[in-house]
Design a protein around this nucleic acid. Structure first.
Lengths: 135, 135
DNA sequence: GTATCTGCAAAAGATTTGCAGCAAG
DNA sequence: CTTGCTGCAAATCTTTTGCAGATAC
């Protein structure tokens, strides 16, 4: 479980980090520090700064990936579940996950053209979901 | 010039808004409010909040497009120059513009699959430029 | 034991807002 | 004139940080 993951990165195996990781695993979508905080509340007490610090450490170790969305907030998710992109409804904020990343080939092409060593990308689509279109 | 653009949107044609628009036009790349502020300094005095307010108004009218990058800051550019994406060097922050947007077809496909009315997307690549790779 | 975590409160950075005065139409 | 624009300072929101006490190993 989470214990080995932490140990393997020379991180101390604390209850709080375990809880954060298990929440990210359970819900399996990118969430904000605030959302994680809300979900930890019933389980144990933890300050928001601890969550930020843990997420920062975990993303340094590439266990967690941070990405900043168009709402200006940082979203965190487990590395192994990443590389999916999202389509976000700008009215109700519903999020649809796009399974296949369409950019891998393009990335290769770009690398050749520019001489850059490409390390990643961020991609997000916006729109209005069928439900909100009706209203 | 900028005058007609403002009038056509029922916005008052002020010197400050003209200056903001002309800077966006001259430099023709997405910049932050802070960068715009620096560039206005030699020209006339204007408070940062005026810049934010003007950019907000202009983006409501779709004259200016706002997008939030992975550094968490908001970047603004003229609508007619948008729809270009960027490759950003994570070491020296150099930015390369990608001329052709590879997502138009994909967007159509997505719209059909999901029933969303797709209004836009954000895409950014990261990497290390040839120069920084050497070091 | 000691290096690493954590809580708290304070600080930071980017952006927004209330209010009173100013300027464009 | 009067509606909308601007400056200033204060407020907001998210995230980071300093420090002192607590915990994992």
């Amino acid at each position: 479980m989470e214990e080995n993951l932490l140990k393997s990165m020379d991180l101390k195996n604390t209850k709080k980090r375990q809880v954060i990781l298990s929440i990210l695993k359970e819900y399996n979508y990118a969430m904000t520090a605030e959302e994680i905080y809300e979900k930890t509340k019933p389980l144990l007490s933890m300050s928001v700064s601890t969550i930020y610090r843990a997420l920062h450490t975990l993303s340094d170790k590439n266990i967690v990936i941070k990405s900043i969305r168009q709402d200006g907030k940082s979203y965190y998710q487990l590395q192994k579940y990443t590389h999916k992109h999202h389509l976000v409804c700008t009215v109700c904020q519903e999020v649809i996950t796009i399974e296949h990343c369409p950019l891998e080939e393009l990335e290769q092409k770009l690398a050749v053209q520019t001489g850059y060593q490409i390390t990643g990308h961020s991609l997000e689509f916006f729109g209005i979901c069928p439900n909100c279109t009706k209203k």
